[in-house]
Amino acid sequence: MAVQKLTDDGKVTKTIIKPGQGLLPNKKSEVSVHYEAFLVKQDSKFDSSRDRNAPFNFTLQGGQVIQAWEIAIPTMKVGEIAEITCTYDYGYGEKGSPPLVPKKAALRFVVELIGSWEPAGSARQRLEAAAKKKEEGNDLFKKGSLETALFAYRRAREYIIDLWDCEPEEMDECRELVIAIQGNIAMCYIKLREWEHAIEVCKKVLERDPCNVKACYRIGQVSIETLDFEEGIKYVNMGLQVYIYTSIDNKCVPL
């Protein structure tokens, strides 16, 4: 694994442990990471988001993290795991951060970039951001990066799941996009064998679109895995019934 010098003085370095499949964040993106932090001299861990089972979210160039991270994180692709090292002047400075980080401490981090996203304000901006994030998720899914694809789909959903203050055509667009994103989220859960979450999301799809055959089919798939055959038969039959319906003005009506 080659060591990359990220500063001219060589005091911030990065070594890629696992390459990422996603995009690079923008300079002022909001990002989500998992990390473990170590004191180099003592070779001891002093902090870990993984131990807390809680990813750390922050905004780049927002003054929330040490300078080494501001330099290194923008060089990481989504899904990448890297070791980042820095001297104290790119870390917590001469004073350190007592009691965990002593004075003039060199630091080492193992960081995974889980995802990144951009702020969006208006309804149109949120719809465009959601569509872009969905496409990012699709690309990651095709590459087999299921966890990072799932994160991208969730972020896409968060842009628009509560969108209501918009024009009627935007509301229709939002509905269709939410259904598509939810379907993709369910597919990720199925691939990850997270059956309960998969069924929950499929049922949310059916709440918005009772004629969604894919959602019925996927619940049937999951029910085979969970041996809940009664549930599976119920939704498979529901899906089959849709075939005797036709779509008129976006409504399911009997033939």
Rank of each mutant, 00 (worst) to 15 (best):
Q4T: 12
M171F: 07
G22I: 11
L113E: 06
D9A: 03
E118Y: 05
E136W: 04
S116F: 01
Y90M: 00
K132T: 14
T7A: 01
E118M: 12
I16H: 10
A152C: 05
P119G: 03
V101D: 02
Q221R: 11
A129N: 01
E169Y: 15
K251V: 09
G10C: 03
A72S: 01
A215S: 07
E196I: 15
E70N: 02
E80R: 06
K77A: 02
K18Y: 10
P25A: 06
W117A: 00
T226M: 04
N212T: 06
C202S: 11
A106T: 14
V236K: 11
L6M: 04
V111P: 00
D209A: 13
D8I: 05
E169W: 15
C188H: 11
E225F: 09
Y35Q: 12
E158V: 05
K27T: 13
T226G: 01
L24G: 04
S49L: 11
A72R: 03
I71D: 00
L192N: 10
A72N: 02
I199G: 01
A2M: 13
G96F: 03
E158L: 07
V201G: 02
Y235E: 14
R157F: 10
D8K: 11
R126Y: 00
I84S: 05
K11P: 03
S223Y: 09
A37N: 13
Q42Y: 14
D43G: 13
L206I: 06
P25M: 08
K5R: 08
C166T: 09
A215D: 07
Y243K: 15
E70G: 00
D249A: 13
N138W: 05
R52Q: 14
R108M: 14
I190C: 05
L240G: 04
F58S: 11
K18M: 12
P99W: 06
K18L: 14
R124G: 00
E158H: 02
I185L: 08
D9E: 09
E36I: 10
S122T: 13
D162K: 15
Y189N: 12
K142T: 10
Q67P: 00
D162P: 04
E118F: 02
V111A: 05
S145Y: 06
G62L: 04
I114A: 11
S223V: 13
R193P: 03
A129H: 01
K133D: 03
V201M: 05
F109C: 07
R175V: 10
L107V: 14
K27E: 11
T226F: 03
E70M: 02
L113R: 11
D172S: 15
S247N: 13
Q182S: 06
K143I: 08
G93M: 04
E112C: 06
K95N: 02
F38W: 12
M187E: 12
E80L: 07
A129S: 05
T226S: 01
L127C: 04
I185A: 02
L192Q: 15
K134G: 01
W164M: 10
N57G: 03
L39W: 13
L24C: 09
F229W: 11
K214D: 10
A131W: 10
E194D: 13
V65C: 03
P19S: 12
A215T: 06
I17N: 06
T87R: 15
K191E: 08
F38M: 14
S223L: 11
